[in-house]
Write a protein that binds this DNA or RNA. Structure first.
Lengths: 201, 201
DNA sequence: CTTCTAATTAGATATTTGTTAAATTACATA
DNA sequence: TATGTAATTTAACAAATATCTAATTAGAAG
């Protein structure tokens, strides 16, 4: 039954240790011992989690001498569209731009902004492609104050200065975790949180 | 911490009952009692799961008299790009059949399969109409193994068991992204696999 | 054959989680 | 106010899960 596949997929990602494993693997393959050390768990625990990730087809394994190297399954990479995959791949860069120089990236960013914003600074529409959408969202969010709390009405007004469909964009802010919402109060997710996630490991 | 949100999100979707609730809600809002009845669980169980779904911002609630109506958080509607959301929204999204019941769709599907496959399970020919063609392609692809890599010759043989024009059908697999091809190696796109929701009800 | 390293298994334990029955709360209306 | 319906809470329990330690297996290299 297909339901099991879906549930299994989410179960595989429903554990912090496993997410951390995936984050580590996004940087490149790694064997069990180094994963265990990096995450401060025993090798047995890694074996346990590796089995779950394997069942969900999220990782591949390769034997070299008596070490087993784990790596991310390619299709996980290609289908990365949610916050999770975004989190995991933010640093590694979504495969295509792995070898992009920092200048190339800046140029891409500029091109996207030029494309989706009018000369007056209005947002034409949200890009459908995740990578571009994130560039746009980051641009908007960069104009908010760090540490300040915004009421819902305030946030709506802010967004409306760029685009009339504030509800959608507000939702995007939340889902992509550029902002947190708590009891109708919105607050920027400290930049370190999404730009520097290394501390997760 | 960001990690908790991600894990929480996946935990929310890591239970079959909750997925079924979301599927039911994709048809429209529903109150707790009818959900309980439809899923053959007690109202207490629904309350329990609703809390989890609410924590993950997947549903909204509305009170009318003394009944509480649950509905999907609209975020999902606009971002149904991943396997799960795609699964849940497939019928709502596919234009034209938006108001088709899950039963109607199952019936359509059966009719199409009956029409385009012989009694021996051979494919007569590919439907010209897109919607029907996709039904046929999904049916074929559902017989492939998830996570397995197929050589070109293997894929051809597989298709030939259904129809001699393997080249066309192979191309359709790729075009409609049921499979990926890389260096002559074909592999099922897990997303499409998971998107087969028919048997879930 | 012995030794070393890496990974897995097996068993144990504590925690979390899904479910239910029973009691309770919240609204609506007669 | 009393009654009925829907939802929640509480307490209990079984099942699943994450982790560890200790023992075992797999492979490489002396």
């Amino acid at each position: 039954m297909q339901l099991d596949k879906i549930v299994g997929y989410h179960k595989a990602l429903a554990d912090p240790t496993r997410i951390k494993i995936l984050i580590l693997l996004a940087d490149g393959e790694r064997n069990g011992l180094t994963l265990a050390e990096k995450l401060s768990v025993t090798p047995a625990t890694i074996t346990h989690h590796a089995a779950k990730l394997r069942e969900a087809s999220l990782i591949n394994e390769r034997r070299e001498k008596n070490a087993i190297y784990f790596s991310l399954n390619d299709y996980f990479i290609k289908n990365s569209s949610t916050a999770t995959e975004n989190l995991i791949y933010r640093r590694a860069g979504s495969q295509g731009e792995a070898d992009m120089s920092i200048n190339d990236q800046a140029r891409t960013r500029e091109a996207v902004l030029k494309n989706f914003f009018t000369m007056e600074g209005k947002l034409k529409h949200l890009p459908a492609q995740l990578k571009k959408k994130l560039i746009v969202l980051e641009h908007l969010v960069s104009k908010l104050d760090l540490g300040r709390k915004y009421g819902e009405k305030e946030i709506n007004e802010f967004i409306k200065a760029f685009h009339e469909d504030f509800a959608t964009i507000r939702r995007e802010f939340i889902m992509h975790q550029y902002m947190y919402r708590e009891e109708q109060i919105y607050e920027l997710n400290p930049r370190e949180m999404w730009a520097r996630w290394e501390e997760l490991s």
